[in-house]
């Protein structure tokens, strides 16, 4: 008797772990940037968050008698993204609770990888944000020198001054306030692009994030439609409402959200048309929240909001089956 199985009998090299580990590699530049700009404490937060995520995944897997899916690396991604979404000064229990919430409640209780409705990292961020609003909205200015030099000294204290994020300044004082803060417009763009501005540790450096996003796009792990339509919608709304589109693109968590979180497979639509709609929706909600909402930033909420709609979008925006008249 030989082995029996259905066709096809050969397979491309694709596997879930390969996708997830490439994703982790793509997050590395941003991680390096976080340490560079915010010092060793950023690294510490990331390690704690990832460790919590991995341990939670293991424990909940055992408890719920699921197949343990640690090796596919999705828990590591969630842990990293949770840490990326926090200011450097948060107490250490915040990433712990966040990662636990993301993995245990948002992911595992909904059925584990592939069944969750919401992006675990984003849901976790929003949860801890509402749990500890003051801690989650205390921002520190980036270090003036490289944070790597401090790694050896195990100096985990925060010694910079607290300030406001560019988006908050824009909200309170408008463009004029931004210009006094950054000096010139070009200087502001440069600082925002490199990541030299207060914000969540993983979201400030557009350069590092774009490097990782480039890798993901090249390896075809993420596709163009979602990030492109997301960013295009933001630019369009900025132009229509007379805001500075480059500033809005580079500030806040937009790049991180558009390339790394809105593109999450499980919680985004599957057809190209659906993806574009999803991206446009994210852009719309983000800009409405940024310009009219009570909080300065709206990326997490917009993506979570569209996550909820994704199954519906999938239902109504199917690919046209060849040969079937509509």
């Amino acid at each position: 008797m030989y082995r029996l199985s259905v066709s096809p009998h050969i397979h491309s090299k694709a596997s879930v772990s390969r996708i997830m580990w490439t994703f982790i590699v793509a997050l590395m530049p941003a991680m390096a940037a976080s340490i560079w700009f915010f010092g060793p404490r950023a690294l510490y937060l990331e390690i704690i968050s990832v460790a919590t995520a991995v341990i939670t995944e293991l424990l909940t897997g055992l408890l719920l008698k699921k197949r343990i899916t640690l090796s596919d690396g999705s828990a590591v991604i969630t842990g990293l993204l949770v840490a990326f979404n926090m200011p450097v000064s948060v107490p250490y229990y915040v990433p712990i609770v966040g990662s636990f919430f993301g993995i245990a409640i948002v992911k595992q209780l909904f059925g584990g990888l592939g069944y969750n409705i919401f992006n675990p990292a984003l849901a976790a961020r929003v949860f801890v944000m509402f749990a500890w609003l003051p801690e989650m909205t205390t921002w520190n200015a980036p270090l003036t020198t490289s944070g790597f030099s401090k790694l050896a000294g195990f100096n985990f204290s925060i010694d910079t001054i607290t300030t406001a994020t560019p988006l908050a300044i824009a909200k309170m004082k408008g463009m004029a306030g931004l210009l006094t803060e950054f000096g010139s417009k070009m200087g502001m763009y440069k600082d925002l692009f490199l990541g030299k501005c207060p914000g969540c540790i993983g979201e400030t450096s557009a350069l590092a994030l774009l490097l990782g996003a480039g890798l993901l796009l090249l390896t075809k792990i993420i596709r163009w439609p979602i990030p492109l339509s997301y960013l295009a919608t933001v630019v369009l709304i900025c132009l229509l409402s007379g805001n500075d589109p480059i500033f809005h693109l580079l500030s806040g968590g937009l790049i991180l959200g558009a390339f790394f979180m809105a593109t999450d497979y499980v919680t985004s639509p599957m057809t190209p048309k659906g993806m574009i709609l999803f991206g446009v929706g994210c852009g719309l909600v983000t800009m409405v929240l940024r310009l009219k909402g009570g909080l300065p930033e709206g990326v997490s909420f917009s993506i979570l909001f569209m996550n909820a709609l994704a199954p519906l979008i999938d239902r109504y925006f199917k690919n046209p089956v060849l040969g079937v008249k509509t």
Binding site: V97, V128, F130, A131, W132, L133, E135
Partner: peptide
């Protein structure tokens, strides 16, 4: 205990 405000929301 640093209360999580979200729980009473």
């Amino acid at each position: 205990l640093n209360p999580m405000i979200v729980m009473i929301l």
